[in-house]
Amino acid sequence: MSEAEIIEKLKSGSEPAFKQLVENYQKLVVNTCFGMVHNKHDAEDIAQDVFIEVYRSIHKFRADAKLSTWLYRIAVNRSLNFIRDNKKRKWFQSFEDSVETKTKALQNLAATKSDHPGFQLENQQRAVLLHEAIAALPKNQKVAFTLSKYEDLSYSEIAEVMDLSVSSVESLLHRAKKNLQKKLYRCYKKKCL
């Protein structure tokens, strides 16, 4: 089934078309959400909501746009909303809770990657360090970096998703990388790992 066929059938409420859509784009959406929230379970939850939103608002989809671009946009917006709500919740959390959350994040990483032969404690710590550095980036830099690193999108594709010019995306990625480097160097100096 082609993309156009899927969209047409989805507009008439076809369930097999929806199944096909989920199967085709599941990896894309989950990966994008994971790049933003850095937790597999949360990423899958958000991805499920993305597909539900697509199912409900498929009639709003313009035929001239690419379906993947639309999916990226919804996934990014949903993930940013999730991060915002999580921040609000964390603001009310005590110190103990935040320590517990960090331990859980480490356990989560260990659980998801325990079957990976090279994935050991050092790698887990590296992952937590990188996630924190990415999470600390300004919103637009975070989105551009995630789409570039986790989805390997080109500058023009990122520009299309973010509704920006290619030069703006270049600048965003340049600043994101600079900020990450600063944070990682500071941590290297302090011997965080």
């Binding site: 989920v22 990896k27 989950v30 790049g35 597999k40 899958e44 499920q48 990188l130 990682l184 160097y185």
Partner: peptide, 28 residues
């Protein structure tokens, strides 16, 4: 050290597909 840290994103890219994903979406 920096190379190893940046490599994390490559390792994290999901290649496997959750077989129950569609069922969960439908239930939700």
């Amino acid at each position: 050290d920096m190379k190893k840290t940046l490599q994390v994103t490559e390792d994290e890219k999901s290649t496997e597909v959750n077989p129950f994903f569609y069922t969960r979406v439908k239930a939700k």
